[in-house]
């Protein structure tokens, strides 16, 4: 444990009192119903022979990967090996880029999200996403930011105040912002903004949460907070996280997939498996080299 970790630990303990926990329990005892929202609980996400193109360039080839329900899957690998592209395939953000194409199937609890008749909006509502750079809506207040998905997807909610509180508690931001829910979301610090984005994604109760290097723009304390949030989400939501930070992958993930692209070749999954195995006794020598920091 580093000095920073110790400092954060004591900071967190100071912040969370017994009374707070009790209050939080009470808040979570209330059931908030979102009409038209995703079905409850985590879902298994599975990629079958997934390939992706940008124009004529094949950037990702033949990815077979199961991201089991309620677990945290980390996607690791050097830059430019197709991790982010793969992540964007998983909630149909890939198709927003002009000239983007794909092959293969992405199954959400067995249903192909690219099946004809399945709308991208429906898929994205069930599979939330947190981006590398915090991107709250700056013109909206913190409360409006959290509830933005309801407005965007035209969903009704039985108890908005409780939903805001639950989402912010789950994202680990409630204590810091509860007195200023009506101040603009853009006025928060970078780490707080990122947690606000997580709260915003969690508000619709997605089945899966995708995170594209969520901590790369954050300081160690905020990173720590986000990692704790991921840990608390385990079991409730399936998490898929892209990270360049090997320690982070080791700390937060249950499963790990190592992506690699040879020069001018599309990215492939070199190896996948339980995180502890991937970091101790991987079968591929390139994986061992990468997780031990010998390249990349």
């Amino acid at each position: 444990m580093t000095d920073v970790d110790v400092a954060v630990e004591s900071d967190l303990e100071e912040n969370l009192t017994e009374a707070d926990l009790e209050k939080a329990e009470k808040v979570f005892a209330k059931k908030v119903e979102i009409i038209g929202g995703p079905p409850p609980g985590p879902a298994t996400l599975e990629a079958k022979d997934a390939c992706a193109w940008f124009g004529d360039r094949l950037v990702l080839e033949g990815v077979d990967l199961v991201m089991p329900k309620g677990q945290v899957t980390a996607l690791i690998g050097p830059s430019g090996c197709g991790k982010s592209t793969f992540l964007r395939l998983l909630n149909r953000m890939h198709e927003l880029i002009p000239g983007a194409a794909l092959d293969g199937e992405i199954l959400l609890d067995g249903d192909d999200i690219y099946a004809t008749g399945t709308r991208a909006q429906q898929v994205r509502m069930r599979i939330g996403m947190v981006f590398q750079k915090p991107n709250p809506f700056p013109a909206m207040t913190i409360r409006e930011n959290v509830l933005a998905a309801l407005k965007l997807a035209r969903l009704k909610c039985s108890d908005k105040d409780t939903l805001v509180e639950q989402s912010l508690i789950r994202a680990g931001l409630w204590k810091e912002v509860r007195d200023r829910l009506d101040s603009p979301g853009g006025a928060l610090s970078g780490g707080q903004q990122q947690r606000l984005c997580i709260a915003r994604s969690l508000a619709v109760h997605p089945n899966v949460l995708l995170m594209d290097e969520p901590c790369s723009a954050l300081d160690p304390t905020s990173t720590r907070r986000v990692e704790e949030t991921i840990d608390e989400l385990r079991g409730e939501v399936t998490v898929v996280i892209v990270t360049h930070n090997m320690q982070q992958a080791q700390r937060v993930s249950d499963l790990c997939a190592f992506f690699l692209a040879a020069e001018n070749q599309p990215g492939v999954v070199v190896e996948q498996g339980p995180t502890d195995v991937m970091f101790s006794t991987p079968t591929d020598s390139r994986t061992l080299d990468y997780v031990q920091g010998r390249f990349g």
Binding site: L96, Q121, R124, G128, F131, N135, L152, A153, V204
Partner: peptide, 17 residues
């Protein structure tokens, strides 16, 4: 900012939304 547009789409918004 493209980030904000992506955020809105990733939350399940339509293009008009």
């Amino acid at each position: 900012p493209p980030g904000e547009k992506e955020a809105a789409l990733a939350l399940g918004g339509t293009r008009w939304g």
